[in-house]
Amino acid sequence: MEFLSSRVIIHPSDRERSLVFYRDKLGLAVFREFPGGTVFFLGGGYLELSGRGAGGAGPDVALWLQVRDLAATAAELVDRGVALDREPRLEPWGLREAWLSDPDGVRIALVEVPAAHPMRLDSRPPA
């Protein structure tokens, strides 16, 4: 089995409001647009806004977005009018995280991986 691409699909309650949030507030670049939908670049995958949702966001799903500089990213988002649900802080597992929510309550983790964190280290034995 081989998976060639990945995409998270969100059905917002108000597509225009969510477009403004993801495109203008978060600054995600548009990959493609089609009638009733917009797909954004999202690191190694994509985020699609399409259709119309009615159920709202649940607490069990969140977007995990890695950034280079969490403090600078958080400050820029606040300057753009985005409210943070939780200010940046170092977590016990060694990642720096801040949290925010999209207009429908989708939880978004902004994550900075510090230089000495195991996610950045090459675990292969030396050649």
Results as ranks from 00 to 15, higher is better:
Pro35His: 05
Ser6Met: 11
Met1Asn: 13
Glu48Ala: 03
Val8Thr: 13
Ser5Pro: 03
Ser13Asn: 03
Trp99Met: 08
Phe3Tyr: 14
Arg89Trp: 12
Ala57Arg: 01
Gly43Asn: 11
Leu90Tyr: 05
Ala109Asn: 06
Val82Asn: 11
Ile108Phe: 06
Ser123Glu: 11
Pro35Thr: 05
Pro125Arg: 15
Phe40Pro: 13
Val82Pro: 12
Arg23Trp: 03
Phe21Glu: 04
Glu87Gln: 15
Gly44Ile: 06
Ser13Gln: 13
Val30Tyr: 04
Gly51Gln: 03
Gly45Leu: 09
Leu65Met: 15
Gly58Phe: 02
Gly81Asp: 10
Ser50Cys: 02
Ala62Trp: 04
Asp122Phe: 05
Arg96Glu: 15
Leu100Gly: 12
Val111Arg: 09
Ser6Phe: 05
Pro59Asp: 15
Leu70Gly: 07
Leu4Cys: 07
Asp122Tyr: 06
Gly37Leu: 04
Ala98Phe: 08
Pro59Thr: 13
Leu28Asn: 10
Leu95Gly: 10
Leu90Glu: 14
Leu84Gln: 06
Gly53Val: 00
His11Pro: 02
Leu90Asn: 09
Gly45Asn: 14
Pro59Leu: 10
Leu90Thr: 14
Ala109Ser: 08
Trp93Phe: 09
Arg80Leu: 02
Gly27Gln: 03
Phe21Ile: 02
Phe40Thr: 14
Val39Lys: 00
Ala62Ser: 12
Phe31Leu: 12
Ser50Ala: 07
Ala74Glu: 07
Tyr46Phe: 14
Leu95Ala: 11
Leu28Gln: 09
Gly44Cys: 07
Ala109Gln: 06
Ala71Arg: 13
Arg80Ile: 02
Ala71Met: 09
Ala115Tyr: 07
Asp24Glu: 15
Val20Phe: 00
Gly37Lys: 04
Gly44Asn: 09
Ala109Phe: 02
Ser50Gly: 14
Arg86Leu: 09
Glu97His: 04
Arg17Met: 00
Leu121Arg: 10
Arg32Pro: 04
Gln66Ala: 12
Asp14Met: 00
Tyr46Asn: 13
Glu87Lys: 08
Pro118Glu: 10
Thr38Glu: 10
Arg7Ala: 13
Val82Phe: 10
Leu19His: 01
Asp104Glu: 03
Leu77Pro: 07
Tyr22His: 05
Glu112Ser: 02
Thr38Ala: 12
Lys25Gly: 02
Arg68Asn: 12
Arg68Ile: 02
Leu4Ile: 11
Phe31Trp: 12
Ser123His: 11
Ser123Ile: 10
Ala115Ile: 13
Arg23Cys: 12
Glu33Asp: 13
Asp14Ile: 00
Val113Ala: 07
Ser18Leu: 01
Gly105Asn: 04
Ala74Trp: 03
Thr38Asp: 10
His117Trp: 07
Thr38Met: 06
